[in-house]
Design a protein around this nucleic acid. Structure first.
Lengths: 135, 135
DNA sequence: TTAAATCCTATTTATTGGGTAGGAAAATCT
DNA sequence: AGATTTTCCTACCCAATAAATAGGATTTAA
């Protein structure tokens, strides 16, 4: 299941991508338009900023704005920051690899091979989709 | 993330599929070979039985066995029973559909469309994989 | 100087995953 | 028949995580 954090983050990003010009958009504007708890959204935008997707301006007339062109914001990057691993099991994750405590041998593990296939097909989508494609 | 329930269930199924003949296999044998908590596995096998994947025999010499040929046990069916929805959001789920409380219109929702694509590609894999393919 | 915005850390609350407990019911073996 | 060994079933617990909230510090424009 996609976490609400990721879902809200994606919605906020598309909201920003739809803006004309690069005037900062306030949290509350986004939260109202997209029906997201203001405080929760605040923390999400904060992590998106800390990870280089958003810029911000403080004080009156402050807000958030995209740092890159929507077509240069790959879904795979956003997903990894907000949701974490793309893979369904850590043992087939590229960026969050972890060995399973059960499973003595990954090479002969049936679950491993199945989930590898799922990962590849999902990755294929996220690699080839940018924020621009979401609008 | 794939739940351990699903992971263990898949491992148990492949273990059973690898058996010669259809003699019942006891829970404890599977749990030892696959490093799964005995009690937890018990509850998993129970749901697999209640959903028509496994048969069981009680008492001494009892245990579990596959009811169908491994090639007739589709991954998509197993996944839906053990893991639940294939889709990452309820609003694109075929079997577990639910409307999102935020989102006023699914047809114009960017997340919806993206996750629909992911669902389709994952579904495509699970539809075309059977237990036999896991061995 | 005031108001309005982001920034930041910590805390709370709710949900779920993972696992246990304990006994009832059934089947086998002696 | 009785002992033993298995599955069956319901209920419960615990820890981790997700979701959301609190509250003040900092910055900026008017």
């Amino acid at each position: 299941m996609l976490s609400k954090k990721t879902k809200y983050g994606l919605k906020a990003l598309t909201y920003l991508a739809r803006q004309e010009g690069d005037k900062p958009v306030q949290i509350s504007e986004i939260s109202e338009h997209e029906n997201i708890s203001r405080k929760f959204l605040e923390s999400i935008l904060l992590t998106l900023r800390k990870n280089g997707f958003l810029g911000s301006k403080k004080g009156k007339t402050g807000g958030y704005y995209l740092l890159k062109d929507p077509k240069d914001i790959k879904m795979v990057a956003v997903m990894r920051i907000l949701e974490g691993p793309i893979a369904m099991v850590p043992c087939v994750s590229l960026n969050f690899y972890e060995k399973c405590d059960d499973c003595p041998d990954e090479n002969t593990c049936s679950v491993n091979k199945l989930m590898l296939e799922v990962r590849d097909s999902t990755l294929n989508i996220f690699n080839n989709k940018s924020l621009a494609d979401l609008i």
